[in-house]
Amino acid sequence: MSALFQINDLAVSFPGRDQTVYAVNGLSLAVEAGEWLGVVGESGSGKSVSLLASLQLLSATSRIDRGQVWFDGRDLLRLKRRPLREILGRQIGVIFQNLANGLDPSMRVGQQVMEPMLAHAICTKPEARRRALDLLTELGLSDPERQFERYPFELSGGMRQRAMMAVALAAEPALLIADEPTTALDTTVQLQVLSVLQEACRRRQMTVIMVTHDLGVATNVCDRVVVMYGGQVMENAEIDTFIQASVHPYTQGLKGSMIPLNGTHAPIQAIEGSAEIFHQVPRGCPFVARCPVAFERCHTERPRLLSLADGHEAACHRVEEATARVG
């Protein structure tokens, strides 16, 4: 199997006046065609930054230090503006977390959904209109004829998020990158939006990369999960392995931090501290300061991503030593 979209050894930093922030530090991940990949981690783990950087969508204050992003036989990081725009929207759709970023406030919703089809000359204008209406209907926008003529601010949060999904899906891209697509929504609405998104992507056999901090969302919709911390991959596992046999202390910590909903009052095993900002490229494991089982080597040597089983990888010295002893 070959990857549809592959990030190789990506490093991104934000040079500042006094100090530089190293947000992504040698990230590699790949998604295969038809797969639904979840990228999870706390805020500041580099999950959003790395994907935005891979599409050259970060602001000018950032710097891509190294790496390649392979899609359709080309390195997206080496592409000029124009060819990149040909790919974005047409072959790769993007949904942002921040509702305000995704839609143009001065343009009618319908117009915005038609835009990718017209910009990439996929079909004629009446055809685009028909398809846009179908898409809005499919995504569960109530009364699509009327919403079509409205401006984004006239829609509720849930409707706006559906409209944004429609824009991302309009040109039928092969890959969808969704950054926390349901985080800002009410819980009952989040469920509806996730469900129509999942339906729509399945029907089109799309590949999806979904960035989320919510393990509940990731484990309920994704086929595979990549756990990030300090701008690196900590663990990469098929969903069942992730649920039942994850090994990385950070993954364990994330799971332990989930508040159970069963009426019991058992103490929560949360990770200590909060996600760090790195002003130097971490020399050892980025998680070392918060890790309950860290030892000397973790401070000085960066753990390599170790292949444990078919499709299961983890970057942890403890895990490596344990497997070496067993094997």
Partner: peptide
Amino acid sequence: QSILEVPTSKAARKSLTGIPGE
């Protein structure tokens, strides 16, 4: 119903259906 907890396996996922509307 709308709370998504980690399921015990991929097969044990519940369907993503909730109440309609906002």
